[in-house]
Amino acid sequence: MRQTLFATPLRSASLLLVWCALHNSFSPLILLTGVLLALLIPWLSRGFREPQPAVRRYGLLARYLLMVLWDIVIANMQVIKVVLGPNRSLRPGFVLLPLDLTEPLPLTILAGTICLTPGTVSAELLPRSADKPQFLLLHVLDLQDEARLIAELKQRYEMPLKEIFACSV
């Protein structure tokens, strides 16, 4: 793989923007140090990054992000309803979500998506060896129907991620 100085332009642009935001300034000195850091940090850390699958369907990715934002709003409303209701009606529990995804980046996005929707938290990836089928251990604030939750998470989040990254099962 050919390495260039500007191999990760989005990462570099993000670093520059964060640097300027942290200093609350776009002065020439801040911009100069920001550009140097934005070029130097990705170049120095290139050996630590593993190759990740490329996004194959950007339109689907945009739709996925909008769906997740909508789900966050809806989940907030549901959590408010559950928390303000009687505590005896809460049914917290753990769920093992069987995974078809195997690549680290889509798995990380799936776990992050689940954590972003209030009421669910990704606790652990089980087992930790990649040669066995993997499961994502989830904690659910109010577990109504485990089978329905698993089917919904797989259909709503995992399937689109498999399509976005063109992952094979």
Rank of each mutant, 00 (worst) to 15 (best):
L66P: 02
Y64V: 01
V73F: 08
F26H: 05
S27P: 03
L116M: 15
M67F: 06
A151L: 11
L143C: 09
L101Q: 08
L39D: 04
A21N: 00
I80F: 08
A7W: 01
C167N: 07
Q78D: 14
A130F: 12
K132D: 13
R49F: 04
V82A: 15
G93W: 05
S122G: 07
V18T: 12
V79F: 06
V73E: 00
D145C: 09
G85C: 02
M67R: 11
G119D: 13
R63F: 04
G119N: 07
N76D: 15
V95I: 10
P127Q: 13
W70H: 10
P92V: 04
V79I: 09
I41E: 02
G59S: 09
L136C: 04
I72E: 04
V121D: 02
E146H: 08
Y58T: 12
R63W: 10
A38R: 01
G47Q: 03
V73R: 03
L39T: 08
S14G: 15
L31S: 04
M1Q: 11
L116Q: 08
D100E: 13
D145Q: 15
V73G: 03
Q134A: 07
S122K: 10
P53F: 06
S89K: 09
A130T: 15
M67Y: 03
L137Q: 15
R91T: 09
V82F: 03
L136D: 13
A147E: 15
E146T: 13
A130S: 14
R156I: 02
I109P: 01
Q134P: 01
D71E: 15
K162C: 07
V169H: 05
S14I: 10
L10Q: 11
L125Y: 11
C20R: 00
L161E: 14
G112P: 07
R2Y: 02
V169R: 02
G47C: 01
V79T: 05
L66G: 08
P127E: 15
L39P: 05
V169E: 13
L17W: 11
P53Y: 08
A166M: 07
A54N: 11
Q3Y: 03
A111E: 07
S89A: 12
V68M: 11
S129M: 10
N76C: 06
L16S: 09
V121S: 06
Q144E: 15
N24Y: 01
L37E: 00
T108V: 14
L90K: 12
R148C: 04
Q78T: 05
D100F: 00
L126K: 08
G119V: 01
L97A: 03
L36E: 00
E158I: 03
D131Y: 08
R2V: 11
S27A: 15
G47T: 08
L141E: 04
G59R: 10
